[in-house]
Computed example of a mutant assay.
Amino acid sequence: MRVAARVFNERGYDGTSMEDLARALGVTKSAIYHHVSGKTELLRRSLDLALDALFAVTREESSTTGPAIDRLENVLHGSVRVLVEQLPHVTLLLRVRGNTEVEKHALARRREFDHLVADLVREGIAAGEIRDDVDPAVASRLLFGMVNSIVEWYKPDRGLDADELADSLARIAFRGLRTQGGGEGRSDGARPRSGSGPGRSPD
Rank of each mutant, 00 (worst) to 15 (best):
G15T: 07
T40R: 10
L143K: 00
V3Y: 07
A162R: 07
V90Y: 07
G197T: 10
A22K: 04
R59G: 13
D52K: 00
L177H: 13
M1W: 08
L21D: 00
E184L: 08
G199S: 05
L92W: 11
I130F: 00
E101A: 01
R131P: 04
R23Y: 02
L120D: 00
A31T: 11
A126F: 04
R6W: 11
D132C: 11
R109V: 03
R109A: 05
L94V: 09
F174R: 01
L87K: 09
R193L: 15
D203Q: 07
H89M: 14
A106M: 04
L116T: 08
N74A: 14
R2K: 14
R171W: 15
E123W: 07
P136A: 08
F113P: 09
P88R: 01
H35V: 06
L43Q: 04
E10S: 14
V75D: 01
G145I: 02
S46Q: 09
W153Q: 14
G199M: 12
I125W: 02
L54Q: 14
D135W: 02
P202M: 15
D20G: 11
D163F: 02
D167A: 07
L169K: 04
E73W: 06
A50H: 02
L120R: 05
E10Y: 12
D203H: 12
P198N: 09
R45Y: 05
A190D: 12
G159N: 08
L25M: 04
E184Q: 10
R175H: 15
E61G: 09
D114Y: 07
Q86P: 06
L76G: 10
L54W: 11
G128E: 15
L42E: 00
D188N: 04
D161R: 07
H105Q: 07
G12V: 03
D52R: 13
T16R: 09
P88D: 01
V138N: 08
D20V: 05
E60T: 05
A162S: 04
R11D: 08
D133S: 13
V75K: 02
D14Q: 13
G185S: 03
T64P: 13
P202G: 13
W153K: 12
R81G: 15
A190C: 14
H34A: 13
R178V: 11
G159S: 00
D133F: 04
G15Q: 12
L165I: 08
S187C: 07
R200C: 03
G145V: 06
P192S: 00
L169N: 02
D14Y: 15
A56R: 13
D119S: 08
S149A: 10
T58S: 11
G185D: 09
A56G: 11
L92M: 05
T65A: 13
A127N: 04
R175F: 09
L25R: 07
F113N: 01
T58Y: 00
G197E: 09
L43E: 10
N74C: 02
E41F: 13
N99I: 14
R175C: 03
R191H: 10
V147E: 02
G159L: 11
I172K: 03
V102P: 00
D133Y: 09
E103N: 06
A4L: 03
D157Q: 14
S46D: 11
A56W: 13
A173D: 14
D133E: 06
I69Q: 05
Y13L: 09
E184P: 07
R71V: 03
L76C: 04
G176I: 00
G124V: 05
L47C: 05
